[in-house]
């Protein structure tokens, strides 16, 4: 059972969190179909260190960036959105 660090509330257990996808830079609404499809559907899906957006839905409701190893589940870094990533 994961133990994740909410940047505001500190470490809490997995049920309080929701994975909210991979961080993505939103293209404008004038880009081609392939670029827009890549933004919507393509995933880096790294095996190993992986950048993710999570929310502390069962707590303060804030969203934050998490670097996490998708094999060992080790938490590498937790950042508030916009913090130096």
């Amino acid at each position: 059972m994961l133990r994740l660090p909410c940047p505001y509330c500190g470490e809490r257990d997995e049920p309080e969190f929701r994975f909210a996808g991979e961080p993505a830079v939103r293209p404008g609404s004038d880009v081609g179909d392939a670029v827009w499809a890549a933004y919507l559907y393509m995933r880096s899906n790294e095996k190993g260190p992986h950048r993710e957006v999570w929310s502390h839905a069962g707590g303060c409701g804030q969203f934050f960036l998490l670097e996490r190893d998708t094999v060992s589940h080790a938490v590498l870094r937790a950042l508030r959105p916009g913090e130096a990533s």
Partner: peptide, 22 residues
């Protein structure tokens, strides 16, 4: 729930899942 003991000293508060309810 799984709130850490230290989170509830007087002067502290926490939002968490309590029996599955936030």
């Amino acid at each position: 729930g799984t709130l850490p003991a230290g989170a509830l000293e007087p002067g502290m508060c926490a939002q968490t899942l309590f029996a599955g309810v936030r």
